[in-house]
Every structure is written in structure tokens, then in C-alpha cells.
Simulated scan of single mutants.
Amino acid sequence: MNSLIHTASLISDACLNTEKVPRALISCGVVEAAAALCLIFSKAPGGIFLHHGKAPFYLYYGILVAIVVCGLIEASAGFWVSGDTVGRHAAGMTILWVSIMPLVTVAALGGFIILNVK
């Protein structure tokens, strides 16, 4: 949960400072992809994904693979924006705001439960 709060603070910092947009894109993309990969490899689908046939089961893993790809694209966009932060600021902020939905989806599916070490 700590990394989710840190990611949210990076997004809010990027709204205030143009120079922080690439860092926010790269960090959020990597956290998003890593959390989705952790879900793929360590947590079996539950809830509505279990007892309604095979389609929801495959949909669960399809969603997670799509989130991994989105996270990697977001991190790559961070490197692209870092080449010209002033000229590519609008594109970077658009990508950052669009990427909030996959981040929320991973959090809702339980991707950050793995980070809670007791």
C-alpha cells in the first residue's frame, strides 16, 4: 500500500512541475506492470472469475496481461517525454491520467497485497 501512496504522490507532483512528468510516468508504469505480474504468477482468480465458466477465467488473465503491456508502454513514454519535457508535457500528462484506470484495476484485483510484508 505504501507504493500505491508513493505513486499517487508522484502523479500529483507531476501536475505541479513539468520536470517531474517523466519520473512519474516511468515509476507508475513499472509499479503497474510489476503489480500485474505479481498477480499473474501468485494469485489465482477469485470471485466472479471462478464459477461462471472458462471465459471469465481467461478474461482475468487477459486483463492482467493488458495491464502489464500498458505499464511497459507508460514507462517507455516516460523515456520519450524526458527527451523534451516542455514540448511533450501535454502528451505525457495525458498518458499519465489515462494510466490511472489500469492502476486502479490492479489495486482492485489485489495486486498490492503482495507488498504487505508482515
Results as ranks from 00 to 15, higher is better:
V21Y: 01
K43A: 04
L72R: 02
T7I: 13
G46Y: 04
K54I: 08
K118L: 14
L4A: 13
A55I: 12
A24P: 04
I100F: 05
G46Q: 10
I95E: 01
L64W: 06
L16S: 15
L72C: 13
T7H: 11
D84Y: 00
T18N: 13
A55C: 07
A14I: 04
A108K: 03
T7K: 08
V31K: 12
V86I: 14
N17M: 10
D84N: 14
C70W: 09
I113R: 11
A91C: 04
S27I: 07
S99M: 12
L50S: 09
A44M: 11
V31D: 13
F49K: 04
A90D: 10
P102N: 01
G53M: 06
A66N: 10
Y60E: 06
N2W: 02
E74H: 06
L16Y: 08
L115F: 10
A14C: 04
D84E: 07
I95D: 00
L37M: 10
I11L: 13
T18V: 15
D84F: 01
L103Q: 07
H51K: 12
I73V: 11
A55E: 15
V68P: 08
F41E: 14
F112I: 01
E74M: 09
S3E: 14
G111T: 02
E74W: 02
A24Y: 01
L59V: 04
L37R: 14
L16Q: 15
I73W: 06
W97Y: 13
L103K: 05
N116R: 12
V106K: 00
V69G: 03
F41C: 10
V65Y: 06
V104W: 02
N116A: 12
F41R: 09
V65H: 10
M1G: 12
M93R: 03
I11R: 12
V69W: 06
K20W: 07
I11A: 10
V106F: 01
T85H: 03
V106D: 00
A34E: 15
V69Q: 11
S27H: 11
G110F: 00
H52C: 07
V30T: 13
V69D: 08
H89L: 02
L37E: 13
S82Q: 15
G83T: 09
T105G: 03
L10H: 07
P102C: 00
H89W: 07
I67Y: 04
K54P: 00
S42Y: 05
A36C: 09
D84R: 05
L64E: 08
V98N: 05
S9I: 06
D84M: 01
L64D: 05
S42N: 11
V104T: 05
F41P: 00
V104C: 09
I100V: 15
F79A: 11
L115P: 01
M93W: 01
G78A: 04
S3W: 02
G71V: 01
L64M: 05
K118V: 13
I63E: 13
N2D: 15
V98T: 03
P56S: 06
S27A: 15
I95S: 03
M93H: 03
C28A: 14
A35K: 08
H52V: 05
G92P: 02
H6F: 08
I40Q: 12
N17A: 14
F112P: 05
L25P: 02
K43Q: 13
I100N: 02
H52F: 10
V68R: 11
K20I: 08
D84A: 06
G78L: 03
H89Q: 11
L4R: 11
L16V: 10
T105C: 11
A77D: 05
S3P: 00
S82V: 06
P22I: 08
